[in-house]
Amino acid sequence: MCTDRALIMDIQSGDKKALGMLVDKHKKTAFRIALGLVGNKDDAYDISQEACLRVYRSANTYDNSQPFMPWFYRIISNLSKTWLAKRSRRENKMVDVDDASFLLIDSTNPEDTMVKKETAAYVRNALLKLDYEDREIITLQHFRNMSYDEIADLLDIPKGTVMSRLYYARKKLATIMRSYYEQR
């Protein structure tokens, strides 16, 4: 199995097969990260593809001494931010809040499905109300199940910052969730 760095070096010399292999390896991760950040499947798909194209176009700017994933993550994150800024300007395109295609419930038991569906809808709404940075850290920890060390490496921040960002993001998420429950 080729490492990411080896593949990037091949891409730098114009090898499209290497790009194919790299894309195959990271396409689902790219999609899931983007989905967590923008909350819409179609757009997450487009962002993931655009991120792969950027890898191909910008392969020569990649520093081979650094790990691939944080670089790739920054590309996805920047694209997501740009997309969200565009969305806030037009805002006609709705996110998949209610059709359950953004966050799914892991349940096979029909009895508690209704309650869980309702909870999922609240969480979806609350997540989309968070600032970008808060949603990012929640997405990585809660839905990508990444360890603090992995998040720190990915975002290039100290582990202590991961912990404090998580604390504040959770506080805000809990406050939003509480207000939803109070409105019921």
């Binding site: 899931r32 798909y45 295609s101 953004f102 966050l103 892991d106 809660h142």
Partner: peptide, 18 residues
Amino acid sequence: EEFMTLKEMTGIMSYADL
């Protein structure tokens, strides 16, 4: 307790796949 509840809530969910 608040954080654990949140963790429990998000624990039953995963992002949609294609």
